[in-house]
C-alpha cells in the first residue's frame, strides 16, 4: 500500500479531468460525440475480454451474448415494469453474472478451439433466443422506445449527457479492472494463463478462478449492454451477432490484451478506424481486414506494446518509481 502512495499519478488525474471536461466542448458534432460514446461502451466490453482472454488466457467469441443480455434485460425491465435505470442495471448485472457462471462451468474443462466453440455457441444461442422469443423480445423487429435513464434526479438526454455517464462508468470500470489485475486475483489469472498445471500444483483453485474470470468479464459486457440500450433507445438482434463478438475480440487483441489500457486503445483505434475508412466505401472492410492481419503479425503485443517503452522512459526521466508497480 505504501507503494501505491508513492506512485500517486497526479498527471493521470489531470489528463482524465481534462479529457472529461474538454471532449464535449471541442467535439460539438453530434456524430463524433456518438462515435466517442460507442468507443466508451466498447471499451467496457473489451476490458472484460482482456481480463478473460488476456489475463486468464480463455478466449471468448461470444461476448455479444452477454452484451445482448445486458441490453435486453435492462431495457425490458424499464419498458415493461417501468423500473428506474439503476435498478434495471442491477438486475441485468445479476442476470449476466448468472449467464457467465453457466458458461464458465462447462468452459472450465475446455481450452483452445473447444472453448472458443463453446463461447461462440453461447453467443449464437442468446441471439437466436432473442430472435425467436417474439412475445417478450419482439423478435427481429427489436425493442424501440427504451426510456432515457434518470440518475440521482437528473434526466440524461442527448449525446453530451451520455458522454459523461459513459465516461464515469468506463473510468470506474478501468479502475476496478486495474485493481483486479494488480491484486492477488490478477496474478492468479496470469499464473493460470502461463501454466495451468503449475498453478494447480501451487495450490491455486484453478476452476474457481477460471469461472470468476468468466463472471467478471460477463458483468463488464452486461453493463456495457445496459448503457447501450439506454443510449441508443433501440435494440435488435442484429446488434449482437457473431461478427460483433469477433469485433470485440479484435479490439482486445489489436489494443493489447494483457493490459487494461490496451482495451481503451483497441476499442478507440478500431472504432475510429472503421469510421475513417468509410471514405473508401466498398473497399472499407477489405482495408480493415488487411490492417487487422498486419497488426497481429507485426505487433504481437498490440498497440499497448508501445506503451511499455514510454513508461520506462518516463520512469527514468520523471524520477518516479512507476517501474516498481509492475
Amino acid at each position: 500500500m505504501k507503494m501505491m502512495k508513492t506512485t500517486f499519478k497526479w498527471y493521470l488525474f489531470l489528463v482524465i479531468a481534462l479529457v472529461m471536461l474538454l471532449t464535449p466542448q471541442f467535439i460539438t458534432n453530434v456524430y463524433y460525440q456518438h462515435i466517442i460514446n460507442l468507443v466508451g461502451i466498447y471499451t467496457l466490453i473489451t476490458i472484460g475480454l482482456n481480463i478473460l482472454s488476456g489475463y486468464t488466457g480463455q478466449v471468448s467469441m461470444g461476448h455479444a451474448g452477454y452484451y445482448a443480455i445486458g441490453t435486453y434485460v435492462s431495457s425490458l425491465l424499464m419498458l415493461n415494469l417501468h423500473m428506474p435505470f439503476w435498478l434495471s442495471v442491477l438486475i441485468a448485472v445479476v442476470a449476466v453474472a448468472i449467464c457467465g457462471l453457466v458458461v464458465g462451468i462447462p468452459a472450465m474443462k475446455l481450452s483452445g478451439p473447444y472453448l472458443v466453440l463453446a463461447t461462440v455457441g453461447f453467443g449464437e444461442i442468446v441471439r437466436l433466443v432473442i430472435l425467436n422469443w417474439t412475445p417478450v423480445t419482439k423478435g427481429a423487429a427489436g425493442l424501440t422506445g427504451i426510456p432515457l435513464p434518470r440518475l440521482f434526479g437528473l434526466q440524461i438526454t442527448g449525446e453530451k449527457d451520455f458522454f459523461y455517464l459513459i465516461f464515469f462508468v468506463v473510468l470506474i470500470g478501468c479502475y476496478i479492472a486495474q485493481r483486479i489485475a494488480r491484486s492477488k486475483i490478477g496474478r492468479t489469472y496470469m499464473a493460470i494463463r502461463e501454466d495451468e498445471l503449475a498453478a494447480e500444483a501451487m495450490g491455486v483453485p484453478v476452476n474457481t478462478y477460471k469461472i470468476s474470470a468468466f463472471v467478471i468479464s460477463a458483468i463488464y459486457a452486461g453493463i456495457a449492454g445496459c448503457l447501450f440500450g439506454a443510449y441508443s433507445g433501440v435494440a435488435s438482434p442484429d446488434n449482437f451477432t457473431f461478427d460483433d463478438s469477433v469485433g470485440f475480440l479484435c479490439m482486445s487483441v489489436v489494443g493489447g490484451n494483457n493490459t487494461i489500457i490496451g482495451a481503451l486503445i483497441g476499442s478507440f483505434v478500431l472504432t475510429i478506424l472503421s469510421e475513417l475508412l468509410r471514405v473508401f466505401q466498398s473497399l472499407r472492410l477489405i482495408l480493415y481486414g488487411l490492417i487487422l492481419i498486419m497488426t497481429v503479425i507485426y505487433m504481437p503485443k498490440g498497440l499497448a506494446g508501445f506503451i511499455e517503452p514510454v513508461r520506462k522512459w518516463m520512469a527514468i526521466h520523471m524520477k518516479k518509481s512507476t517501474l516498481i508497480q509492475d
Partner: peptide
C-alpha cells in the same frame, strides 16, 4: 494462438469483402 485466430478472422473479412 489468439493472434493466429485474429489473423484468420482478418482473412475472412478480407475474402468476404
Amino acid at each position: 494462438p489468439i493472434n493466429v485466430v485474429i489473423a484468420t478472422l482478418g482473412v475472412a473479412i478480407l475474402i468476404r469483402n
